[in-house]
């Protein structure tokens, strides 16, 4: 249990460190944060698909990173960061910041539920994970524009 807490603490710390290091460049920071979501998905999706053995601790750890990003990423879209740095952020983020924040809050809540469900075994986790994963495309539908 201590080990588990230590791992989770470390994950949170390293996520926080990433943000602190790059916080002078909001575009780089938010891109790094989105990348860390992808890295977490790489850990979790093969478990959900049954391609690798389910590991509750690893799953929870990965999902907590996503939850952490959902909590914080909205702070890295300040006025003036609409363009540049190969950002794929859609103008709609700034036109509808409230809607964008609501999307992030939905991911945060669903990620929290999935992280909690992780200890309940693969089936419980899979259902909560599916709900969480729906947030990805729901938000990307409105708030991201692919540029390459």
């Amino acid at each position: 249990m201590t080990f588990r807490a230590a791992i989770l603490g470390f994950a949170a710390l390293s996520a926080a460190a990433t943000m602190a290091v790059a916080s002078d460049d909001p575009i780089k920071t938010r891109k790094a944060m989105m990348k860390s979501v992808g890295d977490s998905m790489k850990v979790v999706v093969p478990m959900v698909k049954g391609e690798v053995d389910y590991d509750a601790m690893k799953a929870e750890q990965a999902i907590r990173v996503i939850q952490d990003v959902a909590t914080n990423v909205v702070n890295y879209f300040p006025a003036g960061s609409e363009t540049g740095g190969e950002t794929e952020a859609a103008p709609k983020i700034w036109e509808d910041m409230a809607g964008f924040k609501a999307s992030a809050a939905s991911l945060e809540a669903d990620a929290g539920a999935a992280a909690t469900a992780a200890a309940g075994g693969l089936d419980a986790f899979r259902a909560a994970f599916g709900k969480m994963a729906g947030n990805c495309k729901a938000c990307h539908e409105d708030y991201r524009i692919k540029k390459n």
Binding site: K42, C136, E141
Partner: peptide
């Protein structure tokens, strides 16, 4: 399922397509 091989997701108009 709307996920790319690198675990990114579809966005924009492709979400409705998917």
């Amino acid at each position: 399922d709307g996920f790319l091989p690198d675990f990114d997701s579809f966005g924009g108009a492709m979400v409705a397509v998917q």
